[in-house]
Amino acid sequence: MRDNPVDTLTLVYLARLRDAFGASGEAVRPPADVATIASLRAWLAARGGVWATELAPERAVRFAVNHDIAQPETAVRPGDEVALFPPVTGG
């Protein structure tokens, strides 16, 4: 549905998480069992270091899949754009 290769997930890092990860995003190819937001979060946290720190279960991290707010059980599929960001502070 996006114009990226169908076998990759496009990750977008915003605000404080972009600063922490040192990148505005990346294309990843997670294993087939990474099929939900919860499993994607755990897979990224397993990188260790700042990933483990920022994505620890007690940290407030919001996710969006293809521009819609996602829940831990929300499905992620190759071709999706998944954004990671801290709680919003606009207005």
């Binding site: 915003l14 954004a83 919003v88 502070t89 606009g90 207005g91």
Partner: peptide
């Protein structure tokens, strides 16, 4: 609309003072 915007719309504020910059906490 304002109450929902504050908690649902993807905006983030970063404050800069003489002491440096920091992201505003929700």
């Amino acid at each position: 609309i304002m109450d929902y915007l504050k908690t649902r719309a993807p905006f983030w504020k970063k404050e800069t003072t003489a002491e440096g910059s920091r992201w505003v906490e929700a």
